[in-house]
Simulated assay, not measured.
Amino acid sequence: MSPLRRLAIVLALTAFGPRAGHAELLFEDRFDKELSDRWEIVGLTKEDYRLRNGGLEVRIQPQQGGDKTPMLKIMLPFTIEDTAIASVEVTVLDEFTREGEGAALCLLDETGVDFTVQKQRIEGGLFFAPGEYRFAGKDGEEGNPAKYHVHYTPATNAAGPLRIVTRGDHAYFMVGPSEEGKYQTFFHSAVNPKPKRRGFALRAGGGKPGDNHWVRYDNFRVTK
Results as ranks from 00 to 15, higher is better:
203 R>V: 12
218 D>S: 14
212 N>P: 00
173 F>Y: 15
199 G>P: 14
180 E>G: 09
207 G>H: 02
193 P>G: 07
221 R>I: 02
218 D>L: 13
184 Q>R: 08
189 S>W: 03
182 K>Q: 12
210 G>N: 08
177 P>H: 10
209 P>V: 10
223 T>E: 13
193 P>S: 05
208 K>R: 15
192 N>I: 05
195 P>W: 05
201 A>N: 08
214 W>M: 09
213 H>W: 02
181 G>N: 06
199 G>F: 05
210 G>A: 11
186 F>S: 00
176 G>L: 03
193 P>H: 11
185 T>I: 13
212 N>F: 11
193 P>K: 08
173 F>A: 13
176 G>A: 06
192 N>M: 12
185 T>S: 11
198 R>G: 04
194 K>E: 12
204 A>Q: 07
197 R>A: 15
191 V>H: 03
185 T>H: 12
196 K>V: 06
221 R>Y: 05
192 N>P: 06
215 V>F: 01
213 H>S: 09
210 G>R: 03
192 N>T: 13
203 R>Q: 14
221 R>D: 01
178 S>C: 09
199 G>V: 07
212 N>D: 15
213 H>Q: 13
198 R>Y: 04
190 A>D: 05
217 Y>M: 03
173 F>T: 00
177 P>F: 03
197 R>D: 10
204 A>F: 10
208 K>D: 04
223 T>R: 01
174 M>A: 08
179 E>S: 14
216 R>N: 09
217 Y>K: 09
171 A>R: 06
195 P>R: 02
179 E>H: 07
189 S>M: 07
198 R>W: 02
179 E>T: 11
175 V>A: 10
209 P>G: 06
205 G>V: 00
215 V>Q: 02
200 F>P: 07
194 K>R: 12
185 T>Q: 10
218 D>T: 15
189 S>K: 14
210 G>F: 11
200 F>L: 11
191 V>L: 06
179 E>G: 14
189 S>F: 04
216 R>P: 09
174 M>G: 06
207 G>A: 15
218 D>M: 12
184 Q>E: 12
184 Q>G: 09
191 V>M: 03
196 K>I: 04
217 Y>Q: 06
182 K>A: 12
218 D>V: 09
214 W>H: 10
188 H>G: 04
203 R>G: 01
200 F>W: 10
196 K>S: 10
207 G>V: 01
219 N>V: 02
194 K>G: 00
176 G>P: 07
200 F>Q: 04
197 R>F: 00
181 G>D: 02
211 D>C: 04
172 Y>V: 13
174 M>W: 02
198 R>H: 01
203 R>C: 14
177 P>W: 02
208 K>C: 09
173 F>G: 02
193 P>M: 08
223 T>F: 01
213 H>Y: 03
194 K>Q: 13
189 S>A: 15
207 G>K: 01
219 N>F: 10
191 V>P: 03
215 V>K: 07
187 F>W: 14
223 T>L: 04
183 Y>Q: 01
190 A>T: 12
191 V>S: 12
213 H>C: 08
179 E>N: 11
186 F>R: 00
196 K>D: 10
176 G>C: 04
188 H>A: 13
